Simulated assay, not measured.
Amino acid sequence: MASLVMLSPAPMIELPGGEVVLDVKFVEGMKLHCQLWPGTVRCVMRRGATHIDNPMRYSVAQLGFELLALDPDAPVPETLLDEAALLYVAADDMQYLDLPGAMKGRVGKLVYTVEDALLGRIRHACAATQSIRRRIGATWWNLRHEGALRRALRAADGVHFDGYPAESAYRRISARALRYHDNRMRVPMTARPGEQSDRATRLHLGEPLQLAWFGHVEPMSGAADLLQVAFLLRQRGVDFRLEMFGTGPLTPRIHDGIAALGLSDVMTLQEPGPFDPVLVPHLRKRADLFIAPRRLSSPQSFYIEALGCGLPIVGYANRTWKRMHAESRAGWVCRPARPGALAARIARLDRDRVQIIEASRRAVDFARANSFEHVFSRRMTDLRDIAGLD
């Protein structure tokens, strides 16, 4: 029976009695792999994790896929490579760049996934620390591994790119490539016609403009810029409400800023609640626009998720949003790191709300075309084709 072997960077914590702690979304994705792959699905994961975003305990015997736990530096077992019809491997952590050589003489195919390009990886590494020494070290580490990454991608049987930056950087060196937008929006979760109609009515009636943001409240998110955006909108006389949903290290700073600037009547920051049953329905029914002050190009999933709620995006012109905006026409692009540019655009849209209504329709159309189901099906179809399976 054809075996799909996945070498995953997802975190795992082993427990006694044949149990593990895994991320809920990861397990849901693995179950879909099992449904769409015509054979055995095996997943190799590394020990050593201490934190998992959405943890849940599972019995290994009841996961529905074979889980192999390895120590951080342990090699992938030769028998696993021998029996694989296809290896599906994350390339960004550079741990498995030797696999093209290991798969020579074996019947199995090799496909890498890539989430970011060299410049993006360096920017993320530098943004994660204030230490100059660590920034230099991270930059050198990425530069040193870039050649090996490119050679591995060139030698692989296929490459899947999660988003525009990785595709732009590596598409030409891969003979077979697929670009997709990873996200959590399933088709039934997208905005309903009645909700779209209610939003249009609210906008036509001139009710306060409802702005929204969700994500991890940390420096790379640009969330702190929203304090300036809200302050400038108030100065311009825009009648608005801004709801922020998230947690993170900048949470105290945001709360203090709201109080210090006297914005508590128009701006809030609260924990988001569960994504599917709470946050998404709230955004579909209560918000009009999504503000995206992120300077870096990844993660990019929240763009699709906001669009799926019927929310056009006013965002900084990073590499992801520039390309997605050009394809979707579901929002507006502003100069990076310019909160004033975001505020000016929102103020203009407040005076011409028909633009928001029209962009909202395009937002839902684009999100449906890139829904979780559609993206996942395209990826699995490509993997089966590469492996020569029906």
Rank of each mutant, 00 (worst) to 15 (best):
T113R: 14
L87H: 05
Y316W: 04
P188W: 01
G17Q: 08
G222D: 05
A90V: 04
L226C: 08
D182I: 10
E28A: 15
S297M: 09
P165T: 00
K322T: 12
A387K: 09
E218K: 14
K285D: 03
Y58E: 08
L81Y: 02
L81K: 06
M30R: 12
A223Y: 07
H325G: 13
M380P: 04
L36P: 00
C126E: 05
P208S: 13
L70T: 01
H160R: 07
R42C: 09
A127W: 01
F161W: 02
A177G: 13
S297P: 03
E271V: 00
V364Q: 02
Q270G: 05
H204Y: 15
P277E: 11
T190W: 03
L389F: 11
R335H: 14
D265A: 13
Q35E: 13
A138E: 06
V114Y: 06
P188R: 11
R150S: 09
G39R: 07
D73I: 07
G120P: 07
C126Y: 03
A2V: 00
V5H: 08
T201L: 15
L86M: 07
W213H: 09
G215F: 01
S301I: 02
D98N: 10
G222L: 07
K25L: 12
W140Q: 09
R362V: 02
C334R: 09
L80M: 14
R378E: 10
L119W: 00
K109N: 04
A177F: 08
